[in-house]
Amino acid sequence: MKKPYVYLTRQMPPAIVEKLEAECEVGMWEKEEQPVPKEILEKEIQTADAVFCTISDPIDKELINKAENLKIISTMAVGFNNIDVEAASKRNIQVAHTPGVLSETTADLTFALLMAAARRIPEGMEVIKNNEWGAWAPFFLTGQDIHHARLGIIGMGRIGEAVAKRGTGFDMDIVYHNRSRKSEAENEIGARYVEMDELLETSDFVCVMTPYTKETHHMINREAFQKMKNTAIFINSSRGGTVNEDALYDALKNGDIRGAGLDVFENEPISADHPLLSLPNVTALPHIGSASENTRWKMADMTANHILQGLRGEEPDHPVTL
Rank of each mutant, 00 (worst) to 15 (best):
L199E: 08
D173M: 00
G134K: 12
N131D: 13
I159H: 07
N187H: 12
F170E: 00
S180K: 11
G155E: 05
E195F: 12
L199M: 13
M219V: 02
R150H: 02
R158L: 09
R179D: 00
I220Y: 02
D145S: 14
K129T: 11
I128R: 00
F140R: 14
M196P: 02
D173R: 04
H147W: 02
V163H: 05
G134A: 08
Y176K: 09
G167K: 09
E198G: 02
V206D: 01
A185M: 09
I154S: 00
M172C: 10
H217I: 00
K214V: 05
W136T: 10
F205D: 00
F140Y: 15
E215Q: 12
M196W: 03
P138C: 05
A185K: 12
I146M: 08
G157S: 00
N187L: 15
K129M: 07
F140A: 07
E132T: 07
T216A: 05
E132W: 07
L200K: 03
F140E: 05
G160S: 02
A185D: 06
E186L: 01
S183E: 13
F140M: 11
G155P: 04
L199W: 05
P211H: 06
G134V: 01
D173I: 00
D171Q: 11
V206S: 04
E184S: 13
I189T: 05
R179C: 01
V194E: 02
G169I: 06
L151C: 08
R192K: 12
R150T: 14
A149S: 14
